[in-house]
Design a protein around this nucleic acid. Structure first.
Lengths: 340, 340
DNA sequence: GTGAAAGCGCTAACAT
DNA sequence: ATGTTAGCGCTTTCAC
């Protein structure tokens, strides 16, 4: 293992001191151009690569920020991450990703690992399991920026970036009503996550506003997956109070719902189906899935912007904001009752 | 910014030295149980969190490994990363992800950033643009493990984990022939990436072995995306030598091909279509897309295993292996000519 | 079993 | 404009 070039090696070659080298390399103003050029040239010649660890240890800044998401496999989160990276790269911040896989245990580990790695800040979207959020407290205590997005928790007094999920539930329901459906069911998760509750409340409000009854059996609490979608749809369609439309907790669940409906020959839009998230595949399944777009790019951009604001303040948590974005209906075949 | 607890704080409280604390915390054997317990308790009490940076700076090991992929949005790569994490977590290695977004420039930056972050090793799958791979040489020079997977390059003398892409092209073609198609076209990328060339060679070989002519206009060199798929299919179907089946460079491209075929009323399996990758959506589009499964989980697991082997050797590059996995045909509706 | 002390590579006062 | 020097928090020989 040949040992790496350090600023000492450069200093020795040039008969200057390490501080000169350090300053020359980091663009310190009071350095003569000749010295700077000599240093830079020698650095290249010796194939020097800075040890960020040492620099970070000294300065206390790693310029790395950690992002904790349930999973990168959901297009929604992948897209947010992409936009965070994009919004941050000009400021020299790098993103490292930690997946919780919807488990609190992993999430706790994530916070720990990222903090040990001395990240300059953390952005997170909670796992489905997460109820207690005390593992995030340490980040705030260290006075490092913490931003919660999409799946948030009000117990943490930190900035948040969310979609108006009440409205998401409301417009999904209203869209179905406008399309001519009347007996609308909802397949969602049992987990007590704010966004899912909000959507449910939006659903209830839309029903009420349209003078439609709220039928308890029409709300199925289970998981969110293709399998859960099949299960939920099966249960609903076997019930004595069959719905004529189903809102699925996310697009994956919607795929399961559609599968089941096709099997029992009630292919959408005969029974209307709408999901949440606007996953990449949603436009390509048959029938095309209507869904609620959650504007991942805006969320990502807002996260980046808010982080930069926080990191540049003495106290990151002063002037804390809660940004709420508006969801949009994406109309496709699965709710197009008129086409029948 | 309240300052963090260090081992010095623990040492002071307990009237021992930092070395004792360090040893107690890192499970050094020659420490009395009472001391160890006292240290551990005090660490908890003071809410101590180790500074991995300092430890890494001293020991030269960060226990972080960098993974460079074109994009995490492709299910194939997301799945590989997941399995790498899984295979590595018991050994205490963490994974950080860097996306090249198919650009060499980003890829070069990725290597630089990861090296500066002092990762213990790098795994990478090349961007479509990458021809010259000299930016990876520095990793090898530092004697750190470098593993290439899927999109590899023979210029780098490093271990690789790939699919038998010649065979992938061959079995895709053979499957179409077996299904009754005879005039088989191929929509692929212009980029000179080994795996795509290999698939093309496999395609040619399968045609030859079955006594079918190779028609130059049947090979479309473009990009890989839904848009490129539409374009490629359009070009093929307008040609004077219309194919009766199309092999698409990946599943996204296949989606585009299918879209175009539907528009001109030649919906598969009338014209057969097969993709590569077995993306999550492939089973849900209509018609369901036949595809070549590339066994991402095995690739990920193999990467993890190989890394552990390399890191535990004096010279990581001794006994270098090239692991080649076998692809599998996933038969679905889009090639089911018999169903017509 | 525990202590003392020398760094890992870099930055940033404080000099000159 | 450049040099000197003291750490950042931890690990690790070498003593005792």
């Amino acid at each position: 293992m040949k040992k790496k070039t350090t600023i000492y090696d450069i200093a020795k070659e040039l008969n200057v001191t390490v501080s000169t080298v350090s300053r020359a390399l980091s663009g310190f103003p009071a350095i003569s151009d000749t010295t700077r050029k000599a240093v830079v040239d020698m650095a290249r010649k010796l194939n020097y690569s800075p040890n960020k660890l040492a620099s970070a240890l000294k300065s206390g800044k790693t310029h790395i920020i950690g992002v904790i998401v349930p999973s990168v496999q959901a297009h929604f989160f992948a897209s947010i991450i992409h936009c965070i990276e994009d919004g941050l790269k000009d400021s020299g911040y790098r993103v490292i990703i930690y997946q919780s896989n919807e488990s609190v245990e992993n999430e706790i580990n994530g916070v720990k690992t990222l903090l040990e790695a001395q990240v300059d800040g953390i952005m997170a979207s909670l796992s489905l399991e997460t109820q207690d959020v005390s593992h995030f407290a340490e980040i705030v205590k260290q006075n490092k920026p913490l931003i919660l997005f999409d799946r948030v928790n009000a117990d943490l007094k930190v900035p948040t970036i969310t979609l108006d999920d009440f409205r998401a539930g409301y417009i999904a329901t209203q869209h179905l009503i406008d399309s001519g459906y009347r007996k609308i069911a909802f397949v969602t998760t049992v987990h007590q996550i704010k966004i899912f509750n909000d959507r449910l409340e939006g659903y209830k409000a839309a029903l009420a506003d349209n003078g439609l009854p709220l039928i308890e059996e029409h709300i199925i609490f289970g998981g969110l997956s293709i399998k859960d979608g099949r299960f939920g749809a099966g249960k609903l369609m076997r019930g004595r109070n069959k719905p004529d439309a189903i809102i699925a907790g996310d697009d994956f669940t919607a795929v399961g719902v559609i599968k089941k409906l096709k099997e029992i020959d009630e292919t959408p839009p005969e029974i209307g189906v709408i999901g949440f998230a606007n996953e990449a595949f949603s436009a390509y399944i048959t029938p095309n899935l209507s869904t609620i777009d959650q504007h991942a790019p805006q969320i990502g951009k807002a996260c980046a912007k808010m982080f930069l604001k926080m990191i540049n303040q003495q106290n990151p948590y002063s002037g804390m904001e809660h940004i709420v974005l508006d969801p949009t209906v994406v109309e496709r075949e699965s709710t197009n009752k008129k086409a029948l």
